[in-house]
Amino acid sequence: MSKEKHPLSDYLREDRMPHMWCPGCGIGIAVSAFLNALKQSRYGQDDVVLVSGIGCAGRVAGYVKLDSFHTTHGRAIPFAEGLKAASPKTKVVVFSGEGDLMSIGGNHFIHAGRKNMSITILCVNNLNYAMTGGQVSPTTPAKAITATAPFGSFCQPFNLPFIAEAAGAVYVARWTVFHVRQLQKAILEAIHKKGMSFVEIISPCPTLYERRNQMGTALSRMNFYRENTVIKNGASTKDAVMDLDKPFIVGKFVDDDSKLTYLEAMNEYYDTTFSCDANYHTYTGSKI
């Protein structure tokens, strides 16, 4: 069979393939969805910067052919905020996992929503800390077994869309990596929103989470997603709770980017405050 280039080869660091993710891991699918969305978007390859934290999903930065930053654990969001503030023209995308963004980085996440800095946050949620061997994460469903909850987790997990909406995200969606086309569309929409947009991407972790919880292979988990997700666009994020083995909802929950972003609000405020000051100019970036 004649060999041609992979359709995403311009956007992937092919010299680093095969990547380090396990067989059946969904992160690669999420990256495909993101890169396909990027190709369809109005952004060129040089307009976008990708920022990751630490963990399996944190390695995304190392595989995409974009200006990309693999930062410290939990701190992708403040790094992205600093970059966006210095260079407002750049489209800044944070791509990381739920342990990184919602546990160690949880405070940064809610404050990013408050500030409404114009960044897109793509959160791969595989329900456990995978890179370190499958420990309890902020989204591990109650009763699920992990390395640090060998008898099952007795805490209630975070409902990420609910937190995102409460924090002030202008766009909130959740899809699984089974929903490749919807996921791609959601990312395409999210990256064009102004303000903090958020897409939760549910992914299997067959090596750790599915194995420990006797959920079968990655493929059977994908089929679980197919059969046990309810697409409910516009649903209340309160209902987006994920239980161990019950159906859960996916869809687009929030889509309203009418409020001012951090930089818009700052400029609008200062434009009035300093209207008489000859030295004042509307802020457009602080490149040297």
């Binding site: 393939m17 095969p18 993710w21 059946g24 969904g26």
Partner: peptide, 14 residues
């Protein structure tokens, strides 16, 4: 569809 589902960029259709 294979390309969209492949986590390893190992297959694609045109």
């Amino acid at each position: 569809n294979c390309g969209l589902y492949c986590p390893d960029y190992a297959i694609w259709g045109e």
